[in-house]
């Protein structure tokens, strides 16, 4: 069987694991900012998508092309995908790609995948770790007119088909789909593996390929903020008042017992 050709879409995001108190919204620009010492990361679900592709490469062999869209993409962050076993890195990187919505992002990614040409499986995270929309993967599939399966927790490639375990309420279902197909991956698939030193050194020598809108046949007016269907009116942080009553005791056990008494007194229980 010929090698399986895979494309994994990865997005650089503000670290979602940063403490909630670190997130600040600048209401003038409608942008979120984090302190400088908190580095951007690859979206957590995109990392699971990368791991899904690597698992197939482990077993069946194949080539993994990583695709990322944005501007000022930190090379040391995105190159992690090469260090863990990605073969090629293509960046859609330009000022005009900034501030897109699900529509303009999916459209540009789909055009890039068309330019890549040959593909069997496209992997995306179930949603981005910043806008939490969960649309881009399905959007790419619609634009390329290929089948899509969401919420994969396990993926195997068998005879030109993918066998996918999809999370459903109260369990999972096994679904088969012929190539080419788009799969979105969820957290139960498992964490992205650590890079070996050899991989990190090899990745350091590789240079990403950079494509501008014109390279994928698009005008700047079709991408990023200019290509949006949905407009961001306002970004804000809902105000919250601290109201927690801490119940104490001589020991943790006594505090536990006092908590029960407190809840009873206040008629909560």
């Amino acid at each position: 069987m010929p090698d399986i050709k895979m494309v994994v879409c990865c997005k650089q995001v503000a670290d979602p694991e940063a403490p909630p108190t670190a997130f600040k919204v600048d209401s003038a620009t409608n942008k979120v900012s984090l302190p400088r010492d908190i580095k951007p990361v690859i979206g957590q679900y995109d990392e699971f998508a990368m791991e899904a592709a690597l698992k197939i490469k482990d077993k069946a062999g194949g080539k993994i092309t990583v695709l990322s869209l944005g501007n000022n993409i930190a090379r040391d962050v995105i190159k992690k995908t090469l260090a863990v076993g990605g073969d090629e890195l293509i960046l859609l990187e330009d000022e005009s790609f900034e501030e897109g919505d699900s529509w303009s992002t999916a459209y540009a990614l789909a055009m890039a995948i068309k330019k890549i040409g040959e593909y069997d499986l496209i992997f995306c995270g179930r949603e981005s770790s910043d806008w939490d929309a969960g649309q881009v993967g399905l959007g790419i599939a619609e634009i390329l007119a290929i089948p899509a399966l969401t919420l994969a927790r396990k993926v195997e490639a068998i005879d030109g088909k993918a066998r996918v375990e999809q999370v459903i309420p109260d369990g999972y279902q096994v679904t088969e789909v012929s190539f080419p197909a788009m799969l979105t991956v969820t957290s139960e698939l498992g964490n992205l593996r650590y890079a070996a030193l050899k991989g990190i050194m090899a990745a350091a020598k590789k240079q990403p390929i950079v494509w501008k809108p014109a390279d994928i046949g698009l005008e700047p007016s079709q991408v990023g903020a200019a290509g949006r269907r949905v407009k961001l009116v306002k970004l804000f942080q809902p105000t919250k008042e601290a109201k927690c009553e801490i119940v104490e005791g001589e020991s943790p056990a006594e505090a536990g017992a006092n908590l029960a008494i407190k809840l009873r007194e206040t008629k909560i229980i």
């Binding site: 919204v25 269907r229 949905v230 961001l232 009116v233 306002k234 970004l235 804000f236 942080q237 809902p238």
Partner: peptide
């Protein structure tokens, strides 16, 4: 961590 208002 934040909320967004959109119009389409």
């Amino acid at each position: 961590n934040a909320q967004a208002i959109f119009i389409c």
